[in-house]
Amino acid sequence: MLHIYCPHCAEYREEEEFHCAGQAHIARPLDPEACSDEEWGEYLFFRKNPRGLHHELWVHAAGCRKFFNLTRDTQSYEIKEVYMIGEQPSVVAGSVQQTTASGAKS
């Protein structure tokens, strides 16, 4: 089980309270009508499946029911960072920073 920090509740909870809602930072095209089929298909269907760091959208489904972002290593399952919607990750592929799972980014 993952032990996940909810930045809204400001404490750690068990994984069973959460749902993963897939890849984070997927921007909806501002003008869908202007998209080619390929662009729209990319947006709608195609997702990253990295071995290593992955930025995911999670929801505290049984708790506060709010969404947040989480950076996880898909190989070790280690949670590197939790951050709010609208924020950018500070731990990214190739970065040397090795924070542990914490919401305490401050």
């Binding site: 509740c9 909870r13 069973e16 309270e17 049984a62 708790g63 506060c64 029911r65």
Partner: peptide, 8 residues
């Protein structure tokens, strides 16, 4: 107060 799962 917490919202959580009680016996699922």
């Amino acid at each position: 107060v917490v919202s959580t799962l009680f016996a699922k």
